[in-house]
Amino acid sequence: MLRLQGEMIRGGTSKCWIFDHHDVVATGVDVDTLLLGAFNAADPRQIDGVGGASSTTSKAAVVQASAEPGVDIEYAFAQVGIGDERVEWASNCGNCATAVALYAVHRGLVPIAADTTTVRMLNVNTGARLTGAIPTPGGSAPDEGTAAVPGTSALGVPVLLGFQDPAGSTTGRALPTGYVVDTLTGPEGPVEVSLVDAGAPAALVEAKAFGLDGAESLAEFAAAVPALTRLRRGAALAMGLAEKNDPVSHAVPKVGIVSRPIPYRTTDGVLVAQDEYDLAVRMVSMHAPHPAIGLTSAVALATAVAIPGTLAHRVARETPDGTLRLGTPAGVITAQTVPAPEGVSPTVLLRRAARRIARAELLVPVPEGRPA
């Protein structure tokens, strides 16, 4: 057994295990092998590991202080397989970035201010730069707070998460193909799709293309996942994220449906009126309906809505101040677009919550003969 120190932190609606880079290196085992063993990725239930057997609870981040100007913390985000011995490093996770910001404050990786401490982060997977602003009254790191987010009734420390210049974070262009709308082949013929890269590459389809209206429950939306998965492969090829014979990452591109607001009920049965949000969205995560929305997907949507002609722009309600209220299965999540200097894409802000759940020493079974 290998021994590995880690912290479990809830960031938004995800749970993320966070490890110090130096602790990972000290095990002498390559990080993929270490995470596969720690999470028990081979088992769909992850019953002999720390994974939670869902896309939102099978996540990790490896963190270290940064020597790069303007950056405090570098982190690598890992989406660990569930019943699949694979670790994907192709994407970023905003909820885990929320957790990383709280981790950095508690571990003293940034100087703590008397009022609010801002952690400047670099996601090494994608090169994305983010900020996490955390209240630190009296220069102390908080353990609890009263902030809530749709998707959980639990409260946590408020974190204002900012995605800086998110457009083209993976492909180099907000519109990887150069078009606001592309036509891809779906299971029953051509389908219009907007391919956007901001926060993460995403393929967005109008709900009506699949006979949906955007108010579907998770169970109802699940019926569309196989068709969206097929479309997702075409999107990956069109965006240059994979070659014809390559396997497509489970993590990117994101794929989902958008539509005009209509009344719907959340997973908890709460009625959301048509005028309470601006854009209906249902997203797929790791081949399953996302219970809310990944934050990188929210950034992609906020960016798409700001680009005239995209499918998201066509169906979203216009707002004058850059605020976009997304109607997700968990409830309404708000993203705010903040203008940036010319030549830089707008910053996207999201209000999140985080809480430390555990500090632990993991006992990790690792096969022999797997060097670093």
Rank of each mutant, 00 (worst) to 15 (best):
P263C: 03
G11T: 09
G269Y: 10
L237P: 14
M121Y: 09
V62S: 03
A300R: 00
P346L: 00
D23H: 00
R260K: 14
H290P: 04
A353N: 09
T146R: 10
T27M: 00
A273I: 03
P226H: 07
S14K: 07
P187R: 13
K254D: 01
P176Q: 03
G49N: 03
L161Y: 03
T347W: 00
D23Q: 01
S169E: 08
G168S: 05
L326F: 01
G234N: 11
A203D: 03
I262C: 04
V80L: 06
G294D: 12
H250I: 15
T131M: 07
L195S: 03
T117E: 08
R230I: 08
V87L: 09
D321I: 01
G168V: 02
A60P: 08
P150H: 11
A147H: 12
R317K: 13
G138N: 04
V31E: 11
D143L: 13
P201I: 12
G94H: 02
T334C: 08
A38H: 00
E216S: 07
A97S: 15
Y277A: 02
L349S: 01
V80S: 05
A202R: 01
A200D: 11
R260P: 01
H250M: 14
V366E: 04
T170K: 10
G132W: 07
R10M: 07
A235Y: 03
A280I: 10
D30K: 04
R45K: 12
